[in-house]
Design a protein around this nucleic acid. Structure first.
Lengths: 253, 253
DNA sequence: ATCGAACAGAGAGCACTGCTCTCGAAAGGA
DNA sequence: TCCTTTCGAGAGCAGTGCTCTCTGTTCGAT
């Protein structure tokens, strides 16, 4: 029994302990209560995270605020890191959602790309600790990669889609004035990316997008982590301008 | 007495407690021992940091390894965060040093800029936890800004100098094909930067450098923090290529 | 409806952390 | 020599993550 339980936790995480609705929608009262309390714990932890950051997130503190014993929380999350992982997934989904919403807008590729970047930054500024949790220093060794992989991809795919649309509309200049030789390894990296993202863009354009992408997150990280403290005063104006540059570069400018 | 001591700690930090050599170089045995032990603590803490990261750095653990009581360490560093701040300053100096060394090389601006970026990345890959400490999520609220400001600037100034040299040699195209209107706030930001860095480059070029700069650190952070995990296999080739693109962009390409 | 198994909560406890306080020993300058 | 400052050690406090054990409840199958 104990071994089976341990294995379940190892393979499927805490969700494995939730009783699945048995075909016909009949969630037992206990399962409902469990799902609710799980959400409540996550919500409370998210609040604590927003206030004090990941380092200050204490399982005992959320248990106290929820009026339960600290040991009871372990029925829902097997460890503090698992709780953090759940919050990471939520954060990925949140930023992915705002990016996708911004990507659906109309206009030129440069405009849409800028809109996506601005949306990401706005989310990051509004939720700095969530941003840090996701795009800052990884928490322990690092968080579970499998569970976070697909939510993490959403935000990037949104941007790639914008560029793919722009390329289809002829807004992307594929001719290179001064071609840089692309290393063989990087070529195969891009080939793999094309398959994984199901997006047909030439190496040249993909690399331009990645350049712009690292600029977006590099600039946001610099802003939030204080590396532009003595340089920039109006962060939003600076960011919009730089993202515009990056988007023009993607278009081939 | 107590109040005076507290004020000294608040204003000057732990260094205020070190006895200054009284004019003529006569460091007492105690002062020497103190300086040595301070370095020893820092070195030991740095080792722990390299192994387990900032989160796993325990004052008690370094005290144990040094064979002293944990309370004795507080004679040298008033808190764990101050110890971390000392490590942050050392890390800034370390990365600044390798960047400056790389910047002294000869060749075109693109070559030198790439060399600086490659040196930074090599340092980051060799000391990932130090990099995370400096360019990742800020540790508590945040570290002392005054003490870290000037070491932090070294690495950026090295890159700016490379570009300034390139501009002096006529390697930077100042004419803009498709000029992007620069916001007034950003214009004054750049004006301030010109004064602070004592480097005379037009807004256009400074903004290009900042774009490349955020690309450099954005790419390194993406690599070290696992955001390119499923995309790139040969990180060094990818980085070199992207930095080359960024450097060409700085040159006006 | 009953019974055994699974589950949920609470409490005690372990090992660890940062940090403070107090005390005695050592070193420094007068 | 004496007196102040410094230093190291130990005990102790409040807090942490996590485990274990014990009780009461709920669930599903008989």
């Amino acid at each position: 029994m104990r071994e089976a339980e341990a294995r379940a936790v190892l393979t499927n995480g805490y969700t494995a302990r939730m009783e699945q609705p048995t075909g016909s929608a009949a969630p037992t009262a206990r399962a409902r209560a469990r799902a609710e309390l799980t959400e409540e714990i996550k919500a409370c932890a998210s609040r604590h995270l927003a206030e004090q950051g990941a380092a200050g997130l204490s399982l005992r503190a959320v248990a106290r605020e929820l009026g339960m014993a600290s040991s009871a929380v372990y029925r829902y999350f097997p460890s503090r890191d698992e709780l953090l992982t759940a919050l990471i997934i939520d954060a990925y989904d949140a930023v992915g959602e705002v990016a996708e919403a911004a990507a659906t807008g109309k206009g030129t590729m440069v405009k849409r790309f800028t809109a996506v970047a601005m949306a990401i930054r706005a989310w990051a500024v509004a939720h700095p600790h969530d941003y840090a949790l996701v795009y800052g220093t990884p928490v322990p060794g690092y968080a579970a990669p499998r569970d976070t992989a697909s939510p993490a991809a959403r935000v990037s795919l949104a941007a790639l889609q914008v560029v793919a649309d722009g390329a289809a509309a002829g807004e992307v200049d594929v001719s290179v004035r001064r071609p840089m030789p692309i290393p063989k390894a990087t070529r195969s990296d891009m080939a793999r990316l094309r398959v994984a993202a199901s997006i047909d863009l030439p190496d040249e354009v993909l690399l331009r997008v990645l350049l712009a992408w690292t600029t977006v997150f590099g600039t946001i990280s610099f802003e939030l982590f204080g590396h532009l403290h003595t340089v920039v005063e109006d962060y939003e104006a600076f960011f919009r301008h730089q993202v515009g540059r990056a988007a023009l570069h993607v278009a081939g400018g």
